[in-house]
């Protein structure tokens, strides 16, 4: 199985073209195996009672952050469909939708970076040495703050991969015609090859991480995180069961009964 695609040019030199898409099937298979193994382990384990969603609602995600998440997710899936389906043989005019979704993703990420740097508690998502104690697992492991070590690791990996995909994607975007500019040839063939390789590798890794993200989102014991990303809140019981109130002290979800009755994306939180 090839990892990198090369082509011999007219002068007999090898030209780097990008990642070998044989790896796509490897990533899909590996991700599937990881998910199956985890699901089997979790099935064998006796799960305890789930904390109640009733009672006091505490803010976990602000409306801006939830909008960011879902816009990013939508852009990501458009990028994935338009980028990968043609590779597996589904032919359609994919390029415009791909770069438009890429620009949406880039804008969302710029917004998120600015907001995280100046308005959010950046340390809450950053992995600290003390978080490594969570690796012990079971009763010996301390409860996390706002984000668990796994969530922080997922965020860090996704952040690095998305930044690589976006950075290389922008370099590739400059090489095609858009309504705002005519294509440029500022990158050499070799540099373009590296851009395509990094774009492809980051895409493959993102496919794996996104599949894991979806799997954990769908797991019964984690579904309150999905609700939190939709509605913004967790219950006091959920906080107590999964997080250390000493390390994360959220505010009430929103003022008034409206948030309790209909806590939509408008509910605010810090």
């Amino acid at each position: 199985m090839e990892i990198v695609r090369y082509r011999e040019d007219v002068w007999g030199r090898e030209v780097l073209l990008g990642v070998s898409w044989d790896l796509l099937w490897l990533v899909i298979a590996a991700t599937f195996i990881v998910i199956m193994v985890h699901a089997a382990i979790m099935l064998a384990r006796k799960s305890g009672p789930r904390p109640s969603a009733d009672g006091e609602r505490l803010s976990r995600h602000a409306a801006q952050d939830r909008w960011f998440h879902w816009i990013t997710a939508a852009a990501f899936f458009v990028l994935l469909a338009t980028g990968v389906l043609p590779i597996v043989g589904v032919k359609f005019p994919w390029l415009t939708a791909h770069w438009v979704a890429g620009i949406v993703l880039t804008a969302a990420i710029v917004f998120h970076i600015v907001r995280s740097l100046f308005w959010k508690d950046l340390a809450a998502i950053w992995i600290k040495p003390s978080d490594l104690a969570e690796l012990a697992g079971g009763a010996a492991a301390p409860l996390p703050g706002k984000y668990s070590l796994a969530q922080k690791g997922m965020h860090l990996a996704m952040a690095v991969l998305v930044l690589v995909a976006v950075g290389t994607g922008i370099a590739m975007l400059v090489q095609i015609d858009t309504p705002w500019w005519a294509r440029s040839n500022f990158l050499s063939e070799a540099a373009l090859g590296w851009m395509f390789l990094l774009h492809g590798l980051s895409t493959l890794a993102l496919i794996g991480f996104a599949a894991l993200h979806l799997y954990f989102t769908a797991r019964p014991e984690k579904q309150f995180y999905l609700r939190a990303m939709v509605k913004g809140w967790v219950s006091r019981s959920e906080l107590a069961a999964h997080h250390d109130p000493a390390r994360w002290t959220p505010d009430a979800a929103a003022s008034g009964d409206a948030a309790q009755a209909s806590p939509g994306l408008g509910a605010d939180a810090r």
């Binding site: 082509r7 073209l17 090489q175 063939e189």
Partner: peptide
């Protein structure tokens, strides 16, 4: 046709549409 690694040949660029 000359054998360059252009888009149509599976490469990453177009030599005809260049300055």
């Amino acid at each position: 046709r000359r054998g360059l690694s252009c888009y149509r040949a599976g490469g990453n660029t177009c030599y005809a549409d260049s300055p």
